[in-house]
Design a protein around this nucleic acid. Structure first.
Lengths: 144, 144
DNA sequence: CCGTATCCAAGCCGATACTG
DNA sequence: CAGTATCGGCTTGGATACGG
């Protein structure tokens, strides 16, 4: 019986046991959800909607998010809706109105990302130093 | 003076104030570092090296990580080294030997990612349900 | 053994144009 | 107003071949 370690997994110390209880599908989905925090727009869009404290129209979200294109915003919002992080409500009016709201799950998500983000941010100088040092020593093993 | 909101930022509640103290370069770097957790191999590679508890050769890392290609593993390891998350030690021998070790910063990183990962993993069913429901109702606004 | 170089396919994302 | 459709550039990562 060949033990194939699934790609893209993460397990570490005390969470290892729990991770091992997940099916492969669950494990894959977990990674997908976690990965949204490095999606170019997802996290920022969520925090924009969350901080508004009330339903937000498409165009207002677009204003606040910034330089995003319509296409990308639509795609981002659909993804967040699909995962239950925001809700999308369409009003049958002319002109059309669509309102987006953060869900409790979405708020929880933001609250859980924040500590990690903060940890990285407080160490950003150290990372910068490390990169500078790395770039200054000649690329390892470089021929000549 | 046009206030251009940098892309790809994240700020939320109590971390907002701290994030605002970062320069744009620092903010960008923070996002880059955070993003490594969704890199296909970085996190998994780090946990493999960390759990080994001792320096690990390239080929052994490759075995444990699994289906990764040499090229991707090299690239992943270089990135982690550059950011100070692992160390890379070359021995001038024949045949060549290179050993990788997790750094304290790398361990800290893993420890800080774990809670988020665990939170997502414990809610994975909810995310799955949300996706199923989303896929079953006809795509919003879909014509006909 | 531990890489580097090259080619190539897939996917992301912006710009632009069009629609109910 | 809030999308959809299409194109095209850029990046990412696998496969393969080669090198010190």
């Amino acid at each position: 019986m060949k033990k194939v370690r699934k790609q893209s997994k993460f397990s570490w110390e005390h969470i290892k046991d729990f991770c091992d209880t997940l099916t492969e599908a669950e494990d894959t989905l977990t990674r997908e959800i976690v990965s949204c925090i490095s999606d170019k727009w997802s996290l920022w869009t969520m925090s924009v909607i969350a901080e508004n404290r009330q339903p937000m129209r498409f165009s207002r979200v677009m204003e606040h998010v910034g330089e995003i294109s319509q296409k990308s915003l639509t795609k981002t919002l659909r993804g967040l809706e699909r995962d239950g992080l925001i809700t999308r409500k369409v009003f049958a009016e002319v002109p059309p109105r669509v309102e987006y709201t953060i869900t409790p799950l979405g708020t929880e998500m933001l609250d859980n990302v924040a500590p990690l983000w903060l940890w990285v941010a407080t160490r950003v100088r150290r990372f910068q130093d490390s990169r500078n040092a790395f770039n200054q020593r000649q690329p390892a093993i470089r021929k000549q």
